[in-house]
Design a protein around this nucleic acid. Structure first.
Lengths: 352, 352
DNA sequence: TGGGGGAACTGTACCGGTTCAGACGCGCTC
DNA sequence: GAGCGCGTCTGAACCGGTACAGTTCCCCCA
């Protein structure tokens, strides 16, 4: 027994396939009398409605957008900043009826999601515009919005002012009298390791680069050369990198961290090593994720409005899709959201 | 200019469409010489590869599975138990190359995801088997795995032993001497409210029913009739329902909660009201989410292995899809995972 | 020299809809 | 009563591939 199809219903009712199609998809194209009859017969035959895939092919639209994520999909559910972002996107997209398909960047058994998953548009989250996955999306002509990536790429994008935020964080520490400053970040080469004053351009990931620039913007003019500890990914366990910074002769009196999660690890490591925060060590996080307020002491951090970022991303994507549906892609707008230092309890005046 | 298609490439190379298709999808079907030529021409013409949608239609498979979730998709990124679960599913599915599409249960502007999104199979998470969305999936013949739902439905499913876990939680409180016990749960009618001894069958949601049954399994034989406070959804803010339980004459000395999140709210409310946990109030959560260990005092709770649940769900779904691909659906297996009481710091002997 | 066996391609029938330019009939207007 | 407009429905082209049963051609072996 074959799956019942439009034609089955059409034959049974004695009308054309087109009419049955209209009964489901364009009710105004036929008399409501006939429509009800068709619907009834369809029900009776167990016909569920137009096959989504066939409809996609014929209509040329899929009803879903992709979200290209770094590394494993796991982070999409694990990292609080990302979950908040995705939640906001999901909410903002809901009224449009667009679904959300999460895309890992790599390939799994010769299927490469960026190439093989149908979608009307995509959000590219912290995946470099030059990467293989993004290239596929571009070549496919999928309308794209870049999140937290270099706006120079000429595509639509949403960013936050990471650099400014990082700078204010560093200035805050300087204001408190700290001169021996550490940096705990990600993307500066393999393995957790200490890096002699790094060049921001060398960092992997636009966010890493911007934040590093911001920190240096403040530190360097003040004559402060930070001690930098880096690990490959921000998602890795930061305790090793943290130890590199703290478990040494003459550790820094204050540390700037790439994220709240890494800051949390740092605080824990400091405490494990017998230090007191902020008495012996000031710590600044980044993002102001829920974690920042949960920690005790509460974490001084740089706030970004992740919810707003999600909404902006959804809006930008929606309009990018609209545009591409209409004429050719017009000017790619770029949104930049502000950041703001939030001083809480993990930073204090340098004690003597 | 039309999108370049298989045919374009075929014409240019001077071979049949089938051969070009093979060049991309079944390399062993042609000489590698010709294949490379075709690939080169394709590249030159800007042909990206087979259109995913068309391929789906022709192959009858989509390469993605759906996850039907309760309420807003937001919870998928917000609730820690759910995020853990989905993370585990994503991980377990990765090697199979299957993508993950999150499906809201309701309809958005006349598109109903459960009916309109193409998928090879679906995980139904805490959505009743009789609901509209699930019915669509069933009628479409989508291979299904029910998570945390009634196994009676004759479909494959993964559960945890909620009832047993709840019973041991209640027994624990009884062992500690508590006789005036409260219950903070969800699904017993509208609005936050106190409910006189409820019948488990009346609860909305299989999990709610099972946990309630478990609690009563222990309490009723002991002659303890709990004071039950309920709110519509477990995802709602529980502070009002918590207050209903605590801000009264003669509040309970111990409370069983539907989830760790609700337990956390309860603890906070108790503290706000000037109580001490566990001195004045013992609290038991459910799930052993990361939250449970984060809280201070750490939360006594009922542990379920959400990661294992995710893996089991992915495995069950995968095999359900395989089966349906082959012959007709065979016996629907049902997995039940254990639960275990984890005693931490929020429960204590009844202080005379 | 005849024939068996592959490897390398092709022809063609699907997959299951959407869409749009008509065709048809019918009531209304002038 | 001819013509017009409109609401309804149909035909057929199209969306962009996949898959399977051939057809060719060539090599090898008896």
């Amino acid at each position: 027994m074959r799956r019942t199809t439009l034609q089955t219903v059409a034959d049974r009712v004695g009308v054309s396939r087109a009419t049955v199609s209209n009964a489901f998809s364009r009710p105004d194209q036929l008399s409501s009398q006939l429509r009800h009859k068709i619907l009834a017969v369809a029900e009776e035959l167990g016909y569920v409605g137009p096959d989504p895939t066939a409809r996609m092919l014929a209509r040329g639209t899929t009803g879903a957008v992709g979200v290209l994520l770094p590394d494993s999909l796991r982070h999409a559910f694990t990292d609080e900043v990302l979950t908040t972002f995705l939640g906001a996107v999901a909410d903002a997209l809901a009224p449009t009826g667009l679904g959300l398909t999460l895309l890992p960047p790599g390939e799994h058994g010769d299927v490469l999601p960026a190439r093989d998953v149908p979608m009307d548009g995509a959000l590219v989250c912290a995946v470099a515009p030059g990467s293989k996955a993004v290239n596929w999306l571009v070549r496919r002509g999928v309308p794209l919005v870049l999140i937290d990536e270099d706006p120079a790429a000429g595509m639509a994008g949403v960013n936050v002012d990471d650099r400014y935020g990082a700078r204010t964080a560093a200035e805050h520490l300087l204001d408190l009298g700290h001169r021996h400053v550490g940096v705990l970040t990600a993307g500066l080469g393999p393995g957790p390791r200490l890096v002699g004053l790094p060049r921001p351009e060398d960092a992997v990931g636009h966010t890493s680069r911007q934040r590093l620039k911001g920190w240096l913007d403040a530190l360097v003019p003040a004559g402060v050369s930070p001690l930098v500890s880096s690990q490959p990914s921000a998602y890795d366990d930061a305790s090793v990198a943290a130890r590199l910074l703290l478990d040494i002769e003459d550790p820094p009196s204050a540390v700037l961290c790439f994220s709240d999660a890494m800051a949390a690890e740092l605080v824990r490591t400091a405490v494990d090593l017998g230090g007191r925060v902020p008495a012996d060590l000031s710590v600044v996080g980044f993002d102001d994720s829920p974690l920042a307020s949960r920690l005790r002491p509460t974490l001084t951090t740089v706030r970004q409005d992740v919810d707003a970022k999600g909404r902006a991303a959804a809006a930008a994507l929606h309009s990018a899709i609209e545009r591409s549906h209409a004429g050719h892609p017009v000017a790619a707008e770029h949104v930049q959201l502000p950041t703001e230092l939030v001083v809480r309890q993990t930073t204090a005046l340098l004690s003597a």
